[in-house]
Amino acid sequence: MSDTREHVLTGSRGAVRVRVWPRPRPRFLALLVHGYGEHAGRYEEVAGVLGGLGAAVYAPDHRGHGGSAGERAVIEDFEDVVADVHAVADLARAAHPGLPLVLLGHSMGGLIAARYAQRYGAELTALVLSGPVIGAWELPGRLLALDEIPDTPISPAALSRDPAVGAAYRADPLVWHGPMKRPTLEAFARTLRTVAEGGDVGRLPVLWLHGDDDRLVPLDGSRVGVERLTGGPDGGGELTERIYPGARHEVFLETDRAQVFADVTAFLRRVLPR
């Protein structure tokens, strides 16, 4: 999908760049929520899959990320980011009123998407979480206990078994390659607690995707948050789970991503109105 457009919105704390993959007469809207240190442009292939199903796709760069305003890799309050994502949803709905809305969040974007669903779940038709930072994620507490945050950026090898993915990530000038920053870690810790205490999303259909060799957001810790968000194994929630053997953190860029896209496609065909 090479036909993209850009909008710039006034966000909670500055300008927010929004990438749009348009589609004539779409049958639904898809909102992509990217992860920490990256940007919406890395989701071209995901947008293509969603567009093939009939979606007009919208994806903001969060504050401090990509082409949006703010100090690089600093998010002081994720509630502001949720509000920014909601403004993007309003933009999409204004262009295409009355269409179903699907929210897809990866990693940190999974945390944002989970909180969005707690606040605005009635506006959603489905929620897709990829390697979501919810539940028992120990990294913020471990780093915040140190006097100085170590300068250890994300290892590209942790993203995918495909070496081309790591090489592209390393060379991408819009990706943050420095250390995590204390305000962002503090915001992570607060929002993990907020989502844990924020209740479940009722009967909203949820698709959870995760690699079982994800070393950035370990599977077992994420499971705690996913089950809580969907009401637990016996809570009556609409959870579909797909765990990929050997896959690392970015399942949409993994060597078996054809299966991942097939699973997303099957889920959306099942839950979207005909």
Rank of each mutant, 00 (worst) to 15 (best):
D90H: 06
L91W: 08
R93T: 07
H96E: 12
P97F: 10
G98C: 12
G98R: 14
P100T: 08
L101P: 08
V102Y: 00
L103Q: 01
L104P: 00
L104S: 06
G105S: 12
G105N: 10
M108L: 15
G109F: 05
I112E: 03
A113Q: 08
Y116L: 04
A117S: 11
R119S: 01
R119W: 07
E123S: 06
E123C: 02
L124A: 00
T125V: 11
L127C: 09
L127I: 08
V128Q: 01
L129Q: 02
G131P: 12
V133C: 10
V133L: 10
G135L: 04
E138W: 15
E138A: 15
L139E: 09
L139W: 09
R142D: 15
L144G: 06
L144A: 12
A145I: 15
D147K: 11
T152P: 11
P153N: 02
P153C: 06
P156A: 04
A157Q: 11
S160D: 01
A167P: 15
A168W: 15
A168F: 12
R170G: 14
W176C: 01
W176S: 01
G178C: 09
P179C: 08
P183Q: 14
E186A: 11
A187N: 06
T191N: 04
T191Q: 10
L192A: 06
R193W: 09
T194F: 01
G198Y: 06
G198L: 08
G199I: 02
G202S: 14
L204E: 01
P205T: 05
P205E: 03
V206M: 12
L209Q: 07
G211Y: 05
D212W: 15
R215E: 12
V217Q: 03
L219S: 05
L219D: 06
D220Y: 09
G221K: 13
V224L: 10
G225K: 05
E227N: 05
L229T: 00
L229F: 05
L229V: 06
T230K: 00
T230F: 01
G232P: 03
P233S: 12
P233C: 04
